[in-house]
Amino acid sequence: MQIYSKITGTGSYLPPNKVDNQTLAAQLAKEGVETSDQWIVERTGIHARHFAERDVPSSELGLHAATRALEAAGKQAQDIDLIIVATSTPDMVFPSTATILQNKLGVHGCPAFDVQAVCSGFIYALTVADAMIRAGTAKTALVVGAEVFSRILNFKDRTTCVLFGDGAGAVVLEASETPGVLSSDIHADGRYRDILCVPGNVYGGEIIGDPTLKMDGQAVFKLAVGLLDKAARAALEKAGLQLEDIDWLVPHQANIRIMQSTARKLHVPAERVVVTVDQHGNTSAASIPLALDHAVRNGQIQPGQRVLMEGVGGGFTWGAVVVQM
């Protein structure tokens, strides 16, 4: 019998501290940085983002999202036999955030590891979990994207600090007799590593380099739109589908301009694009599962519908996944 994997539950979580553009602009003004709600909205489509408290790590955000996904799937934590966490802001250098989340869930023994592909991380993690379920090495996987990007922002650089926020999203992926994850297409090209990076490290207990996010916004935009289009079309071809067969596009919630440009290239009408970036900004690996959960819970995405998810991130990494809910 052919084994497939299927999303049976979604969950998400945003920390309670919601910071709108006016509040952020006032805070930045104290640092001598000038910006405004109008400036941010016109360039990004973002109206607000959420920041976690200082003592709240990625695993804690992931725990809330995972718990909600498990509830939606009708599963207990003990049913999980694989945990993959996509994050670029881990709790520690090691162990992995996935093992910390595993312990918080009260689960012991199953494989748990992190995937680091920045904003493409959830696409990568879902692809890996799907492959492991199809291979028979797991039956019920928890795939989480969790980030506290506020920790790595330079609040004197208005071109980046207004873009990002904290949050988590999760899905339960189960072995199924019917297709769920239909195809995926993932890539990376390290030649472009410098256009989006955090060029810092730790040596002898000291920070070497700069531990804050650096981005060449124009270079990212030009690269992202073309690569997302190619990955989406490749994933659809692998699934034997046409663009008109897709019910919903759930893009990485990076910037409304990138999302709109990608949708136009794919000829996906605006009413079939899930947009949540306005309320939580770019949450990196968490953004796609956050948006997916939002659309499922508000009744946009229905069981049986086909969803195209896609993302790009530092590395440079990119990819797309086609699922039937």
Rank of each mutant, 00 (worst) to 15 (best):
V307G: 05
L236P: 10
Q102D: 11
A188E: 04
A263R: 08
E177Q: 13
R193C: 08
F164N: 03
G145E: 13
L308M: 12
G136M: 07
I83W: 04
Q300L: 14
G200S: 07
K230M: 09
L308D: 09
P211Y: 00
P90T: 00
C110S: 07
E42V: 11
D216Q: 15
H280N: 11
R54Y: 07
P269F: 12
L70W: 12
T87E: 09
P57R: 02
D210L: 09
G109P: 09
L292Y: 09
C161F: 10
S287K: 01
T283D: 13
T89F: 14
K214S: 05
V33I: 11
M92E: 14
V41R: 14
A231N: 08
G106T: 05
L196H: 06
T317Q: 10
Q76F: 06
P15T: 11
L227S: 08
I3Y: 09
V321M: 05
K139R: 15
V56S: 04
A235F: 06
V56G: 02
Q22A: 12
G226F: 10
P303V: 06
K139M: 10
L142D: 06
L101S: 08
G209S: 01
I301Y: 12
A52F: 06
T140R: 15
Q242W: 07
V198D: 07
I123H: 09
Q78W: 05
